[in-house]
């Protein structure tokens, strides 16, 4: 049976006459990762802020573990945690002191053991004595993640946790999220601009645009909504002959390189187009098929095509 740890209904946020979040509803299932995507100003961060209570909604409801967030704030917050590239820990004190403070705030039993246990996984024990402000961005991210896991949360809200990280550290962070999902059954709400990482870790994706949910599905299903696929062909033979072929088929194309054509067509039409070429004097020497990605869905939405089927 599906268990929802977070249920958001008709959430609204107005800043004066500007509606930042417009009646959004979604759910987060236990053990799942849901991505919250959208262009800048789409309402992602405002939504996260409302889910944390640092910004107040104008309408709608938020329920964690079946309880109303506004009525049971402390209960809900004690079972979730948050990390973001935009919020750091106190730079004036050491890494260990910061973690000790948060262990106390979350009333962690045996805090020292807990801190060392998570720190071992992140390989940051040697940083414990350093002032937080002296750490590199990658080190800070790892320490932030320890803070986010200190209370063994059931829900983790992650606001662009890999922003400004180098690819290696970003990859480690994603591996950790995959590990958390698999081993600890944590539910994660994840915002990011990086479509590859969203495709990698998210079970479901919510696309926000102008404060509204414009698409809500699995990454695979979302990409299926774009019915066209792009094909790059490299060939041997006369370019005029292949151009004539595509003109005859009324298929738009480009020639990005010499002896190559690129065309975008409905997936179902591609086999017959390719088969037709083999009937000509043209010899295909390479085929590169570029299936639609989440980035294409994102771009379509960001460029005003909120009509992704």
């Amino acid at each position: 049976m599906r268990e929802f740890v977070l249920q958001v209904e008709q959430l609204v946020k107005d800043y004066g006459r500007f509606r930042a979040v417009d009646k959004i509803s979604f759910q987060l299932e236990r053990g799942k990762v849901v991505g919250l995507l959208g262009p800048n100003g789409a309402g992602k961060t405002t939504t996260i802020q409302m889910l944390l209570g640092v910004t107040l909604a104008n309408g709608g409801t938020i329920h964690y573990f079946g309880r109303d967030f506004f009525k049971h704030r402390q209960y809900c917050l004690s079972r979730l945690n948050y990390t973001s590239a935009f919020n750091t820990l106190l730079g004036k004190i050491t890494v260990y002191e910061n973690l000790l403070v948060y262990a106390g705030l979350y009333e962690v039993q045996n805090p020292k053991k807990r801190i060392y246990e998570i720190a071992k996984y992140f390989e940051v024990e040697e940083l414990f004595g350093q002032l937080y402000q002296t750490l590199s961005t990658g080190q800070k991210t790892r320490v932030n993640l320890i803070k986010a896991l200190i209370n063994d949360p059931e829900i983790l809200l992650m606001d662009e946790p890999t922003a400004s990280l180098d690819p290696d550290i970003a990859d480690k962070t994603l591996s950790l999220i995959e590990h958390l999902k698999e081993k600890r059954n944590i539910s994660i709400l994840y915002t990011s601009h990086d479509m590859n990482e969203v495709t990698r870790i998210c079970d479901e994706v919510i696309f926000l645009d102008h404060g509204k949910i414009v698409a809500y599905d699995t990454p695979v299903n979302l990409t299926k909504r774009i019915e066209t696929t792009t094909v790059l062909l490299k060939y041997e033979g006369s370019s005029s002959e292949i151009h004539k072929y595509f003109q005859k088929k009324k298929q738009p194309f480009t020639s990005p390189y010499p002896s190559s054509v690129c065309f975008t067509a409905k997936e179902i039409a591609i086999p017959s187009l390719l088969f037709g070429i083999t009937k000509t004097e043209i010899r295909i020497i390479d085929i590169e098929i570029r299936k639609p990605t989440l980035e294409d869905v994102f771009l379509q939405i960001a460029r005003g095509g909120s009509h992704v089927n």
Binding site: V54, N87, K92, K147
Partner: peptide, 18 residues
């Protein structure tokens, strides 16, 4: 102010502290 300057205030206020 220390918590604001170091962008730690949100972390504090999204913990269960009242």
């Amino acid at each position: 102010m220390w918590n604001i300057w170091f962008r730690n205030l949100t972390h504090l206020f999204v913990s269960p502290v009242s």
